[in-house]
Design a protein around this nucleic acid. Structure first.
Lengths: 340, 340
DNA sequence: AAAAGTATCTTAAACGTTTTCGAAACAAAA
DNA sequence: TTTTGTTTCGAAAACGTTTAAGATACTTTT
């Protein structure tokens, strides 16, 4: 059963030509309502479905989107933030009839090819890029290639970019901490990147706007998803003669590392010293007490990326190339306590 | 630039037939070494790469694997355990020249089709299934379909299954706790499933083998990834007249919930009361103190799944249909302390 | 020297579609 | 009645490959 039934089989069964079958199944005008219904009925009765390869070969449209979430330093799939973005991207792409497959640069028994070559080989209609070293020449090549592309959290000249609003996010987070009475706020930031830069400058600027001075020793370099560094930095901060009352971290992972240090020192997070994360991954928001964090709207990020990409594919002329930024939302949690 | 160059272009450039080009590029015997080298050189010089659709159409081999990680209750991608398995699967599949794309049951503007139809439409060479309601008739249909398939953590009659060894895992975990001196061990287990059943019976059996009696009130129903239930259960357990000294949880998420309750009560995990998780997700293993947990070997799980699947595709006759179970490894962490 | 074998290359069909263009049939307009 | 238009359909080429079978030239065997 289910041995492939082709348009040829249907055309035989219906006594029409194979061209007519194609037209009927694709709802082209060039056909009478009567035969169209008959063909459709018989086709579904025979369990027909099209052959993606043949269709793609003929139309050079694969209805397949490539995603580039590389996993060297930061493994895409196992990185909560990007996993959530991808999950959302996947859902909306699939709802529009697109499948998604991963881009890689493995060879098929041959020498490694580039990302762009892989994309052209598979005939992806479009590509989304995230969680990547954007300065990798192979990534550059892909972006300069002639296929529709949207990037996430990084902007390239003349390409659509979906950006999480790190400026506003950090501003909201700092503002929240200040509203809780904190004025001695430390920041363990992530390793250098454009995202880090945005957050860092927003941190300084917001503090300044409230007339808060940030001592140099309050700003330490940690790293994303690095609990150990966060642990060490936290210890260091709390041993200061004038320790901060509130500590910000590059992400929720790191914040959990910081909380470890706080517990280790016999203190209670949110009571003796406040901490806040960034990202709003599920585990952080469901801890006890829940972590105060800035929840990045991964759902919207992924959805917009898919929508824009598909729009770019369908109507390259009329979709405007722009960077859209999506706001996160402060998640109060319980680890930033009221003071004074 | 990079406008598609086909075999036709190469054959023109080389003054040979298309067939000869195909043979040269595919290393068929039927050709002289000299022309083969010449063709290969010119092909690479012209930036040629094959067209996947055409190749798939002709050979009915797509070098594309379908993965079914559905996301309703438990969203596949955002589920740490499965995300890691998938990540490993992806890496080894890609190293063997296969791409991977997600299976879904969305229609292309039409009525929703089944998983199996999607698979046949795309011409996937094989399929891996995980993180799924295995009793879904659409899943059943896919598994009974005529394509190579391997399932993860669930066994179907006459199909390859890759199983994490929950029996041994729970046994090792309990044994470790006992080795630390614990004899009053509670278990907040997950919702009903075959995995839960395995772990629960292994828990009882191991305790029994050490002559340890498990009071009824030590075994509570929590749920996977549910921090709140774990929090509540933990409170309940610690309020007992004779509270346990050690508490086991369905997974690391839940354990973190339990730790929250312990902190809330002014106690120190690993000192005043011990806790252990299950899975060994990165955040748990990098907390301070690190969570004692049973690290499931997601790397091997994913790799074996890919290897077996590809083997099944390449040589259906000689690959044995069996369920292979892969052992996890105890991660001592620091939340199960020595007692007495 | 004829026959047979071997190495190398080409022709052409096929995979399952889509699409252009023309054909046929019929209706409407002149 | 002839012309023109409209609707519905089919023939055939094309997409870029693979592959079976045939063709050619050259070697070897007898």
């Amino acid at each position: 059963m289910s041995q492939k039934v082709s348009m040829k089989d249907i055309s035989d069964a219906c006594g029409v030509s194979i061209a007519t079958v194609s037209k009927a199944l694709n709802d082209r005008g060039d056909i009478s309502e009567e035969t169209k219904q008959k063909i459709k009925f018989i086709a579904s009765d025979m369990g027909y479905f099209p052959n993606a390869a043949a269709k793609a070969l003929k139309t050079s449209r694969s209805y397949n989107l490539g995603v580039l979430f590389v996993d060297d330093a930061m493994s895409g799939l196992t990185h909560d933030y990007f996993a959530h973005v991808l999950d959302s991207f996947k859902r909306t792409a699939e709802a529009s009839g697109y499948d998604i497959t991963f881009i890689n640069s493995q060879a098929e028994g041959e020498q490694p090819r580039s990302y762009l070559e892989h994309v052209q080989y598979r005939g992806f209609d479009g590509v989304v890029i995230a969680c990547v070293n954007f300065y990798d020449p192979k990534v550059e090549e892909l972006i300069r290639g002639n296929i529709p592309v949207v990037t996430i959290d990084h902007v390239f000249d003349n390409r659509i970019a979906i950006m999480s609003n790190n400026i506003k996010g950090m501003k909201d987070l700092v503002t929240y901490c200040i509203s809780q009475g904190h004025r001695k706020i430390a920041y363990v930031h992530g390793a250098y990147s454009s995202v880090t830069q945005s957050r860092l400058s927003s941190f300084y600027k917001t503090c300044e706007s409230f007339g808060i001075d940030v001592p140099e020793e309050y700003v330490l370099e940690g790293d994303y998803r690095n609990t150990s560094k966060a642990f060490a930095c936290t210890e260091q901060l709390l041993k200061l003669k004038d320790p901060p009352t509130c500590i910000l971290y590059p992400d929720d992972f790191a914040a959990i590392g910081g909380i470890g240090a706080i517990h280790m020192m016999g203190l209670q997070p949110g009571i003796d010293v406040s901490v806040a994360g960034f990202d709003g991954i599920p585990i952080a928001m469901r801890m006890h007490p829940p972590l105060t964090t800035l929840h990045q709207d991964t759902e919207t990020l992924g959805r917009l990326a898919a929508q824009r990409l598909i729009s770019l594919i369908d109507s390259p002329r009329t979709t405007v190339i722009e960077q859209v930024t999506v706001d996160g939302q402060i998640f109060p949690g319980g680890t930033v306590g009221k003071i004074n």
